[in-house]
Nucleic acid binder design. Structure first.
Lengths: 208, 208
DNA sequence: GACAAATAACTGACTGGTCAGTTATATAAA
DNA sequence: TTTATATAACTGACCAGTCAGTTATTTGTC
């Protein structure tokens, strides 16, 4: 095996190990996942894993830490661009299928759900830094829209959760069922409908 | 130890083992759960588990099988009573907090999500017999409402998924986050709002 | 009703296999 | 030649599943 001498090369190895770990944790669960398999996926041997991480636990917690933020930041960047709440919702509903189908988010979700009791601090950190922050973003948009008179929204925090719920639903669906091709779902259609119904509800005062 | 000599007593032991297994699988995950611990929870020794079940795997699959149906049936019974789609939705939204807080459904969900890849047939069976059947029930109600002119609903299957999404959302929230008291959510309020917004969207033609 | 024999539920020590983490050795690079 | 990186053989803890032995309960006999 060629050696990673530069810092850059080492970072690359580290990252390869993290994605390998995510895939193994995703497919087998934390306990059933073998360090040996994670190493092979990253084209290294087991011993080398311990050059980059202290333990299996460390692999897990650093994995979540590393993959957590980028997607919220992406979301925040997008939300900043939209002028109205309606515009922000449209943007979000366009982004949702990408989030579910093309990002690592559903995998992280599954891994976190599955092993929440074993890593309570990691889960709490994820909730605060990613979930609550994402919800807060949407809540803020809704509250602003309510203040400006665009919509009437009595409970923006709750409404934000309802905005987000179909994302969780479709991520879970994918995770749990879509290894079976028969169960595939038209996620774009789902979010197109969600957008329509949401805007209809908001503009007819359904959240007032 | 008192012995289970009658069939009834044996059924009771079996059931005790299944609920013990559910709790252990829920808290630790399938692989990390120890048969020894499941046995202790049911006040038996490890060896006795194998008098009632062939293997750890069997414990899992029979567990899901046994706990799956009753809740759909409960739902179907409730849905049969409602006259209108609006009535059915109100009923469902009243039942949802009970389902999330007081039934075994979120635990089963978690266990299934966590170990889906290890038990693909069990998961497929669950999807068909429980999830699709539950969704089908709601789809039917919506379709009937569309036919009778109560609401206009272009895609009842998709709409049904949006009706259900907040149930999954709150179940996942509970599973993942609520070991931390700080994260507790007002589920009743969530479903009250969902009901309002849903009915607003449907009656203003948001799903047409 | 008392006792013995038969039954079957139950137990826990044991086995075989697995796997996280360690370490002695090899080798690429400088 | 020295150093850092990688490897693979190794160790020890752990646990699913087994089975020989134990004992609660029932059944048969007097």
């Amino acid at each position: 095996m060629q050696r990673a001498r530069t810092q850059q090369a080492k970072d690359q190895r580290r990252k390869a190990l993290l994605t390998a770990a995510l895939d193994e944790f995703y497919e087998r669960g934390f306990t059933a996942a073998r360090i040996d398999d994670i190493a092979s996926r990253a084209r290294l041997s087991k011993g080398s894993v311990y050059l980059y991480f202290d333990s299996k636990d460390a692999l897990f917690t650093e994995l979540v830490k590393e993959y957590a933020l980028p997607n919220v930041e992406r979301l925040e960047a997008m939300a900043g661009q939209a002028g109205s709440a309606a515009g922000a919702i449209k943007m979000l509903m366009g982004f949702a299928p990408v989030l579910v189908r093309e990002t690592v988010v559903p995998k992280i979700m599954k891994v976190l759900i599955a092993d929440a009791p074993a890593f309570p601090e990691t889960v709490t950190a994820y909730r605060k830094n990613v979930v609550e922050r994402g919800l807060g973003l949407i809540t803020g948009i809704l509250r602003k829209a309510s203040d400006s008179g665009e919509f009437q929204i009595a409970a923006p925090e709750m409404t934000a959760r309802l905005v987000v719920a179909p994302m969780i639903f479709s991520a879970i669906w994918k995770i749990a069922f879509e290894h079976d091709a028969q169960a595939r779902m038209d996620i774009k259609a789902l979010f197109a409908l969600h957008e329509k119904m949401l805007l209809a509800a908001l503009s007819s005062g359904g959240a007032a």
